[in-house]
């Protein structure tokens, strides 16, 4: 089966799923917007019937103004040589500690790593994933740090003190009218 046949097949396949919007961005990039309830079924079809066997990554984007998280599943087909990015949005659930979604670990094994990463960094609990535990941030007890409402700079200012750096040689230069022209706090953007 050549690439064109797979692409035609993919189009007919995608028509079967409700609430789906397909955008062809270029020859090898397809964007699919899909409802959160249909996404696991879509991935199962993509892997089982359309040769998208490689899950390249799962990316998460926080949209606090919309009260939503966007999850993007990037699937690559070695046969059709095309990358399909499936975008879906889930509610942010700011009242609870975790937002919730379903794991796709049983479809794509690499999902285990990315879901655990998103669990730590964004606080999205993936139900039925075997890896819902701390991995990188084992010493961290604060809020999920990659969320937009976590201000890393404010946290640093509250938690740590800026070191006073004024050695003798710098004092001598300052007395002669030189010294640090631009202080770090003035250049922070």
């Amino acid at each position: 089966m050549n690439c064109d046949e797979i692409n035609v097949w993919l189009d007919t396949l995608l028509e079967e799923i409700n609430e789906i919007k397909v955008t062809r961005k270029s020859d090898r990039r397809v964007r699919v917007d899909v409802d959160a309830s249909s996404l696991p079924a879509l991935l199962e079809l993509l892997k089982g019937k359309a040769s998208y066997v490689h899950l390249s990554a799962i990316s998460c984007v926080d949209w606090p103004d919309d009260e939503e998280f966007e999850l993007v599943y990037h699937c690559w087909s070695y046969e059709a040589k095309s990358l399909l990015s499936a975008h879906t949005r889930i509610p942010r659930n700011s009242s609870e500690e975790f937002a919730r979604y379903v794991s796709v670990y049983d479809i794509y094994k690499p999902a285990g790593f990315f879901e655990r990463d998103i669990y730590e960094m964004f606080g999205i609990y993936f139900e039925s994933s075997p890896f819902m535990e701390k991995f990188i941030l084992t010493e961290w007890n604060g809020p999920p740090p990659m969320r937009k409402d976590f201000d890393a700079e404010a946290y640093v200012n509250e938690t740590f003190n800026w070191a006073e750096y004024n050695p003798d040689w710098l004092q001598e230069i300052t007395e002669e009218g030189g010294g640090i022209a631009i202080r770090p706090e003035d250049v922070r953007l």
């Binding site: 960094m121 991995f135 990188i136 941030l137 084992t138 990659m146």
Partner: peptide, 13 residues
Amino acid sequence: GYLHRGFEKLMEG
């Protein structure tokens, strides 16, 4: 986690 420096967060700032 021994080399975690939060690059993705730093890049947003």
